[in-house]
Design a protein around this nucleic acid. Sequence first.
DNA 1: TCTTAGCACTTGGTTTGTTTGAGTGCTAAA
DNA 2: TTTAGCACTCAAACAAACCAAGTGCTAAGA
Lengths: 345, 345
Amino acid sequence: MLSERQMMILRAVVRDFTNTGVPVGSKALAKQLPIHVSSATIRNEMAALEEQGLIKKTHSSSGRIPSVEGYRYYVDHLVKPDPLQPNDIDVIQTSLGGDFHKIDEIISQSATILSNLTSYTAFTLKPELKDSRLSGFRLVPLGKRQVMAILVTDSGDVENQTFDVSEAVSGDQLEAVVRLINDQLVGLTLPDVLQKLQTDIPLKIANYLQSPTGFLDIFGDVLTRAAQERFYVGGRLNLLNFSQDSDVDSLKSLYSLIDKTDDIANVLGSPSDNISVQIGNEMTNDALRNFSLITATYDVNQHGRGMIAILGPTRMPYSRMLGIVGAFREELAKKLLDYYRNYDE
Amino acid sequence: MLSERQMMILRAVVRDFTNTGVPVGSKALAKQLPIHVSSATIRNEMAALEEQGLIKKTHSSSGRIPSVEGYRYYVDHLVKPDPLQPNDIDVIQTSLGGDFHKIDEIISQSATILSNLTSYTAFTLKPELKDSRLSGFRLVPLGKRQVMAILVTDSGDVENQTFDVSEAVSGDQLEAVVRLINDQLVGLTLPDVLQKLQTDIPLKIANYLQSPTGFLDIFGDVLTRAAQERFYVGGRLNLLNFSQDSDVDSLKSLYSLIDKTDDIANVLGSPSDNISVQIGNEMTNDALRNFSLITATYDVNQHGRGMIAILGPTRMPYSRMLGIVGAFREELAKKLLDYYRNYDE
DNA sequence: TCTTAGCACTTGGTTTGTTTGAGTGCTAAA
DNA sequence: TTTAGCACTCAAACAAACCAAGTGCTAAGA
């Protein structure tokens, strides 16, 4: 249990340290706090806070910095999101104001905006209807030997891939394959499709093609790509700003982490209603030890919900960041509703 | 004019320094060189080499390192490409041995292989027929409002993009647009298409669509993407290994450089017959001051010629790198010829 | 004329010691 | 419970000393 005064001190320690990056001492606090007590009193309180594991020293006679638990307490009980600065509002309005022709453009643009606002790295994930289903498959002959496979899901995702066919395949054959797939697989969830693809389909397709494996590989490829959620990343390079003393190895593992869709999906976790903050080693991944992650969902009514996130140093100004994330999720939801309204009617 | 002995010394200085990274002194050289002269003699020769600007000291009593001019002389006159190590041959064979369905897969895979072999950053550019022409355009309706635009060039490049159409556009209308474009534009070079797109076409297309600008924008987008050469990059993260003392800013500009297709095309220059080496500030771009670039073309007969390149620190073991690049260009050309042969017959 | 031994000199890097300033914990008095 | 005072700790900055590697130059030898 913390006293009012201890909370005040903890809040001040976190705020100071996140702003300046220097451990904060008792004298500085005494001068700065609204109550006027001596530095010795502050020292006693700080000792109490340290006792509880909320702050710690970098060496035996240094000022204090927040521990992970201290940050946790701070974001859970003490922080109040800053309202957006007028300037930031402007940035959002203009960057999101343009005319978009694809959901993905809005989402990817959002990652850029968020990283600009925060100067950290940002992730965005588009609103996802649960268990999207295969709603269409096409094979479009392009030239002498090139064919494009296109796959559409009922949530509006489109994946495609071109490939070369060695044998001269007739348009009729392609038609037949397409009809087969559409007959048998449309309406199923993607995992189901993937499963059938390894059982029923090869037999049936053999009626039309001598060597169906090529086709099926392609189809499988495109399918798995459609099945995994697609993240957009903004401000990748900002990670460089926080790599202490050029620890190349951890930087590398960090970058491979954020470029692997599966891994990053794992880190971000599943959408929850609130804005959530994960601090340093609260995340299982070792490469993130010195980082904090703020994630938030945004809600587009019947069109599902997506996520946004920013990744920055543990030592980040949480109040400002929470303000930005909170405001941005609303703007984004609004923009998307707009977009859908335009096209739905 | 350099004497035989001076060449021998220069070669040794470059080789030593690129291997160890430490300035090399007269005594070490005296011990190592096949001729036996005293270190004092070496010192005199080194003074002469320094006189000519081929080597230099890092401080007044240090050993020597090659200057840019020294490297230049070395690669122009002294270096002999190392033959490939058996291990490296293996890597190439197996990585390139698989079955590919697209040219692009081979080229992008090549970038990865090259960066693995060298542990530097590698670029590959696919064989390009000069002045490729538009050979086909499609609009494929995907769902209620989604349409995919596909563009094919006679060199086999495919670009595509999906977009949403707000008004309910009929299949007939789409057909008409496609027919129009195919009638009017197929066979022209891409720049010509782009030009016509801004003059003739808007008028004609207005017959079929109320607000054609949306379509034209999309088409223009896809077109310009097809028109610019497409690079593949492998081993991006390897650049981190050579960023001295974590100079974040130059790293950032380096990364933005290699991610901008236009810029990197500029740096690589146009294909020339030979393997070419650009050293440090011989490249105009400032971010590359401490890097060297080895570029080479590969030739796929009537299918055109492409480029490969590796970017590493100025202080790279040139003989080994030249060996790798030289061998790889051949392997790649062979593989591509194979690929084309399979599909052409 | 070229080579070489010898020597004085330069310099960066490492080690060691000193000082300074910010900060702490503790004690004793208010 | 608060506070002034004090002894103590530690990182950072600075300086002195030393070492190792290397250089340029000179003068003698081949």
